[in-house]
Design a protein around this nucleic acid. Structure first.
Lengths: 332, 332
DNA sequence: CTGAAAGCGCTAACAA
DNA sequence: TTGTTAGCGCTTTCAG
């Protein structure tokens, strides 16, 4: 592997000058620059990030942790991050927590060992002990949280307005003349699901209509049991005419259940999900949903991080993105 | 950030001894080891991989490139890789090519700059110029290809037996009494799709039955047009009673199309996909498919790489995994 | 605009 | 079993 040294030798320049060429330093004459670049080309020179990182304290690496990579939402975010970071000279490395606190901490640790310059993190469902995260914050290593944001003051974060999303979804059902709504609630230990719960309740309350009924059903963590619970609920309460599912996947399961029960969607029951997953557009009927603007979220998070990286004293930023109602066949 | 130096100072030991403790060298007395470990704990010491990498020439990083991370198959592979690598001391970094030769090369380049010790690569659909890859092979940097393997001799690779998968899928349709089969063909520039094509043809040929008909339809790259093409085909040839789609996603589109045309699945037409995507189990009817053993593939690829990393002179390995027929509602 | 030289944090001979 | 020391490839003062 050719290094800066060989280039120096060939061109008859010093290490310093050669180094400067690759660091866009303006303190180099065009002629020398050209000479160096040419030599670099010939030798197929690849700068050694490790060495540069060691010396300069800047690894040019950004670490990203998501719960799961095989997820429409998170991979959309990753794409947004990639897009934003691509021309900045930074490399990104991706790790998955698989919704486990332990794996999340492991990933954070290996980021620290790799001396990443900044971290983008969406915390796992399981994460309750924030000590590791607080340590990182204290160490001044720039970190931006997205979507799943820990309950801490003074952090950089990008979130979806989940309250608003649930509010919009519920409102949409009400606009479609639904009178008896069910909200299938996600794990309320996670703040975003709590927000959606509030949005659902408030949307109904705001109508101030005694004829409207809104109920919530909390699931176990076992899918089969959950489907059983929902099935029972639907049988017990035949007046249900609108369902707001906390996610598209559970929405799809509900859709299948409704078909099994010979309940017509949207005629008898209208169904709306959350997330705008890719498959929600492939079902029959296509499922109405709330789009989470994932690419934008990734871009924003990365953008805040890059700004902080440029100017460490940049103020902390919290960005709240607005969701978007996507009306499809299942509600009209 | 505390370093090895501070630990040496506190414990009164030399740098070398402290270093040895973290490298599992047995040349350290238990007492000193304990002392060092304790000090490390107190100082919250994180070894600096960069420095170690620079000195030892071993970055402890493995680079993984997949076409797309938001894909059931590839994320399954990533999980397999993570599993296999987790206790080896290596870190993995993931990059996406988004099916672009250019991005693939960019990723490869940043891997080289990061001095990864090994590469796991599934080449993009677009990749035709193999010079970059050949350069890497020549440089002796260990690389293992998986699933999408370039047409080169003397490489490490893990593949699915795509021929066999297609053969099994087609055979299954024939076993279900289908007489007029259609194969919706993937981009035959990619070798795996060519293999599936062969498997389809051979399965029919082997029956040696004049009453059997097998046709292939090659798609454009535009989904809407493609659906139109398939629609036309179905109308032109009402005797079609079995469809083998090269992937589950296109299979789902076909399923929706068939519903639109009021053709019953599996009664009138039996449909089988390829890939065992998560959603193929969520449709109605559930789609029969071929499982690609993605986790296993990731494990195998990582395992070959780790072996090569341990023993650079290890012989080149090619592993072919057997696919698995998954029979669901759409074919019975 | 260019060069000399120190040193980032760690590992690996070699010596003791 | 431990210590001494050189140096991985690069950046960055400081001095020309």
């Amino acid at each position: 592997m050719a290094g800066i040294k060989e280039i120096a030798k060939i061109t008859g320049l010093s290490l310093a000058t050669v180094s400067r060429v690759f660091n866009d330093s303006t303190l180099v004459s065009p002629k020398t620059k050209e000479k160096v670049l040419k030599a670099a080309q010939e030798l197929d020179y690849q700068p050694n990030i490790m060495a540069a990182a060691l010396r300069s304290g800047k690894s040019k690496i950004i670490g990203v942790i998501v719960p799961e990579v095989n997820n429409f939402f998170f991979s959309g975010i990753i794409n947004g991050i990639e897009k934003m970071v691509s021309d900045s000279g930074y490399n990104i490395i991706i790790a998955q927590s698989h919704e486990s606190q332990e794996k999340e901490n492991e990933a954070l640790n290996s980021f620290l060992k790799l001396k990443v310059e900044g971290i983008l993190l969406s915390i796992s469902k399981e994460t309750s002990d924030l000590s590791q995260i607080q340590k990182i914050i204290k160490s001044k290593l720039p970190i931006v949280f997205f979507d799943r944001v820990p309950n801490l003051k003074n952090i950089n974060s990008v979130m979806l307005d989940d309250y608003m999303g649930a509010f919009m979804a519920t409102n949409h059902l009400l606009d479609q003349q639904c009178k008896h709504l069910i909200h299938i609630v996600g794990d309320t230990k996670v703040s975003i699901f709590k927000e959606r719960q509030k949005g659902f309740n408030d949307a109904i309350a705001k109508r101030n209509d005694k004829n409207l009924k809104g109920e919530s059903i909390t699931l176990s963590s076992n899918l089969k049991e959950d489907i059983g619970l929902i099935k029972k609920l639907l049988k017990d309460k035949p007046n249900i005419d609108g369902i707001f599912a906390y996610g598209d996947e559970i929405g799809l399961h509900v859709l299948n259940l409704l078909k099994e029960l010979n309940i017509q969607v949207p005629k008898q029951i209208k169904l709306i999900g959350f997330g705008n997953a890719d498959f929600s557009n492939l079902t029959q009927p296509k499922i109405s949903t709330i789009d989470q603007e994932c690419t934008q979220m990734g871009e924003q998070a990365a953008s805040i991080l890059l700004k902080t990286l440029k100017d460490k004293s940049a103020s902390l930023k919290t960005k709240v993105l607005s969701p978007r109602l996507v009306v499809r066949d299942s509600t009209q």
